[in-house]
Nucleic acid binder design. Structure first.
Lengths: 202, 202
DNA sequence: CACTTTGGTAACCGTTGGTTACCAAACTTT
DNA sequence: AAAGTTTGGTAACCAACGGTTACCAAAGTG
């Protein structure tokens, strides 16, 4: 959460306000669902009128995209940071995937990550696809590392393996609800463990 | 596609019309997305006005649910029929999963199956969850069969395995677009093969 | 032949995304 | 300091769409 300086410039104020809008929208979209959140609700929570928001975003869909990008950055950053640790590629992959699950199941990410596609226009869909490919390639690279350092089976196909692993992992975001009995950390460990099981050289 | 008799009774006509509405809506929802299809569009395609639809459905959301249920029935029927074949449990599981993928990636199922949840009210969500559990238990039962007949590894946990396998399979419905180069049948074979790889004895 | 039931239409309402006309306060220029 | 000019906001409005209501015509019924 970037904060503003004591004597903010005009530009800083603008940026700050825009980020606040996105933060507020992320929370509401993420928990209540995009369609159930009128712009007026976001505006009201920030103490302004709906029209004021249009000084910072060009449309409700644009706002959604900005929420998505912020969430996506958080996800990628968290995963890369988690993987930046000593150990075999298999171990690093495991911690990266677990972090992915935990971050993705944050309440302000639930709806954002899994259900965003049908809400977008074709051009925006492409941007989402690019982000997903980015995540995919991060994990795929680690799979290759695992083959090289011998911590993963030599006969695995990184493309197919990442398809199956990411599928299993993303599926968690569909059925897991934070309100449930299990903590997301436990679920992450279980599911990631199972998804990797067949690929380890154990 | 059920068709009507030569001299339909009133009740038959009613049912027929309701099914036609659902069929038309499924196609449009499935290809264009729920939010992008006004009821007027469906009505227009059927040559009536929007208000006429309300003789057959109680709301747009109710119509969506009916589309979902029809699709769900089709999916379960197709899978059960495909699995009703001689062979080891592993072989039957494979054909069942491949059928699942192929059916799910029909163009009038794309949006329906994967993106329906945020569109529903809590009560409807429960109904969707029940359907998913039904599919899940079908495959889980076959996993148990596989352990018993020795075609699947004895040490697999049906619950976790079905989680990973169904995750991988459902993920196909997210990224696969019929317009792509690959046919859905090929994709199904590849992905199902990979998802089952670690569970086979052999 | 009345009269009820059915399936439909036109017109309307409420919500909500998005726009426009306008205003006040804060910079900028002279 | 006075006169523009830009910025960030508001109130009022428009258009699209889900949903409802008043009404009508045709078919079925006693």
């Amino acid at each position: 959460m970037k904060s503003i300086s004591a004597f903010p410039t005009k530009q800083e104020m603008r940026d700050h306000k825009r980020r606040e809008i996105v933060r507020c929208a992320s929370e509401k979209f993420g928990t209540e669902g995009y369609d159930n959140v009128p712009l007026e609700a976001i505006a009201a929570e920030l103490g302004v009128t709906k029209a004021a928001l249009y000084n910072y975003v060009s449309s409700k869909n644009d706002l959604l995209m900005q929420c998505y990008e912020v969430g996506m950055d958080r996800l990628i950053t968290a995963v890369e940071q988690a993987m930046d640790t000593p150990g075999t590629a298999a171990e690093r992959l495991r911690i990266g995937l677990e972090t992915y699950v935990v971050t993705m199941t944050r309440k302000d990410m639930q709806y954002l990550w899994n259900y965003i596609r049908p809400l977008l226009s074709p051009g925006e869909t492409h941007s989402v696809q690019t982000s997903r490919d980015q995540i995919d390639s991060i994990f795929r690279a680690m799979l290759k590392n695992g083959i090289e350092d011998g911590s993963l089976r030599a006969d695995l196909d990184p493309k197919l393996a990442s398809l199956v692993i990411l599928g299993a992992i993303n599926w968690v975001g569909i059925w897991f609800r934070p309100s449930g009995a299990q903590k997301s950390q436990e679920v992450a460990r279980e599911v990631v463990g199972e998804a990797l099981r067949g690929y380890l050289t154990s």
